[in-house]
Design a protein around this nucleic acid. Structure first.
Lengths: 104, 104
DNA sequence: GTTCGTGACTTACTTTTAGTTAGTCACTAA
DNA sequence: TTAGTGACTAACTAAAAGTAAGTCACGAAC
């Protein structure tokens, strides 16, 4: 057998996150700073609230974002990228660059 | 209503591709040059042949790769990135960099 | 003081997508 | 003649996503 350019397991793991529907868009939207549930929902056309709630839980568990509760009246809840989440910015930028050149 | 940082439709479109399971890994593997069905299949653990065949069709339709048939005996079929596909390299590199720093 | 609206979800149900197993077809080697 | 390989395809089941409606706490409007 020849040499195998086997996949890096960290790379695979990264694409388990990014390669899941909506995650890229959610992260992209949060790059503009913390936002509330409804704001994000409004910015991503086609995504249902159910999906957004589900993704938030996964992304929080993965350490990409945090959920902050401000106990005002009415209560305000914001979602914000962690350092790990912000570190995805170069990826988002690269996608944007590619998309501008090659999409449509 | 405040300003809306609405999503760029090209970006959205790009993530329709990258945000689909297996696509990132398939593209990553093809960055190392043209490869055959079975080689790619062997390099991506957990992905079935059915999925690979389906993804190839989609990625070919999206202009990311081409299917080349070499009429030898036995016939040899290779999948190769197009220019558009190769242009995804900075994204793959950015994912790799992020993964090395933040995954596991 | 009851309905109306908003924000952040949850539940129940349907459809779509993915995973699993087996099969096909054209060869070639034993 | 049988077994194996490469590149798929078909049939079926399981998991994920989509859709619609509901909940709960509140505050404002009629």
């Amino acid at each position: 057998m020849a040499h195998d350019h086997t996949l890096c397991p960290r790379f695979e793991n990264a694409f388990n996150l990014l390669g899941k529907r909506w995650n890229g868009l959610i992260i992209r939207v949060l790059m503009n700073g913390p936002q509330r549930f409804k704001e994000i929902s409004d910015l991503i056309p086609g995504m249902s609230d159910r999906m957004l709630a589900e993704r938030f839980k996964e992304l929080e568990a993965a350490g990409i974002l945090i959920r902050r509760v401000y106990p005002e009246t009415p209560v305000r809840i914001e979602y914000e990228l962690t350092e790990k989440g912000h570190a995805l910015e170069p990826i988002m930028d690269a996608v944007q660059t590619w998309a501008e050149k090659w999409v449509e």
